[in-house]
């Protein structure tokens, strides 16, 4: 057991240097695999026999009316909520239901919450530095020196999220959209295999939305990205495959056009909510 712990921590030390990162086995296709997952809170079935498969490198959008179980699904994948039954696999080797939240995070599943939280007093660069995969115990942190590779990695992420010009500015003065990108950048510093992004464009301007769409589509391929979003216009602009959740299970899956012409979907979601979603952009 001790040996295992030792190995696990050593793996994280060299994490950012080694090209082959988390030992996730995706030879059999999917990176994330949920089968017959159910969970209920006080008798209310938030997730009901949910089956979902995400392929390696895929960009998947998940939509659904409020209470469809989108956030609960994220909670199950990240280990925050335990399902009543069902199985959740990361690659074909890791059973996520046996792992704790930090273990799942270090395996390479990063989650971005709705409300952006960055360290406002620190610069953009320092925010990314702290998020970097490294030995995070006291003494190594105290004596840490920024290596050339680490610096390059941070600059690389700065380019990806488009904040190079703001490198040495305090994160507190960034706009709302820029903070969202910085937070995605902080997730990227941990070299995740799978990114879970919760409502990334809430409260963003038109241009910021476009930038975010570019950013997320650019990330797919290198890592798998799962986006939960309400804004149909945004989903249409980035989605290749869309999954519609309804009452805790998958209602429909396919391209945006297939899904939006599905009569069941139109009935439960698009039909009832099209009044208050900005359909003008669709």
């Amino acid at each position: 057991m001790n040996l295992l712990k030792e190995m696990a921590s050593r793996d994280r030390v060299f994490d950012f240097m080694a090209p082959a990162r988390s030992p996730v086995d995706v030879r059999h296709g999917p990176i994330l695999y949920l089968e017959d997952v159910s969970v209920s809170f006080d008798g209310f079935r938030a997730i009901n026999d949910l089956n979902l498969t995400i392929d390696d490198g895929e960009l998947r959008c998940i939509i659904g009316p409020n209470g469809a179980g989108k956030t609960t699904m994220m909670d199950i994948i990240t280990g925050k909520t335990r399902p009543d039954h069902g199985s959740v696999w990361f690659g074909s080797r890791h059973d996520l239901l046996t792992m704790s939240e930090p273990q799942i995070a270090s395996l390479g599943i990063g989650r971005k919450f709705q409300k952006p939280t960055v360290f406002e007093a620190l610069t953009v660069f320092e925010n990314l530095e702290l998020a970097m995969a490294a030995d995070k115990r006291i003494w190594p942190t105290l004596t840490a020196r920024l290596s050339g590779e680490a610096r390059d990695r941070i600059d690389e992420v700065l380019v990806t999220i488009g904040l190079t010009a703001h490198r040495d500015r305090p994160a507190g003065i960034l706009s709302h959209g820029q903070k969202q990108w910085l937070e995605i950048g902080m997730l990227l510093m941990q070299r995740p295999r799978l990114l879970l992004v919760d409502e990334p464009v809430a409260g963003m301007t038109e241009q910021e939305m476009e930038r975010t769409a570019e950013l997320l589509t650019g990330l797919a391929g290198k890592q798998s990205v799962v986006v939960v979003e309400h804004d149909m216009g945004f989903v249409r602009s980035i989605a290749r495959t869309v999954t519609v959740l309804h009452q805790g299970s998958v209602l429909a899956e396919g391209s945006m056009d297939q899904v939006s012409s599905d009569p069941k979907v139109v009935e439960v979601y698009l039909g009832t909510e099209s009044d208050n979603t900005e359909d003008a952009r669709c």
């Binding site: 939280t117 960055v118 620190l122 530095e129 702290l130 942190t141 004596t143 840490a144």
Partner: peptide
Amino acid sequence: SKLGRVSVACRDAEAR
């Protein structure tokens, strides 16, 4: 040090 920046991070957003 990096620990100092982590301290500031704890000060401003502990949960994060």
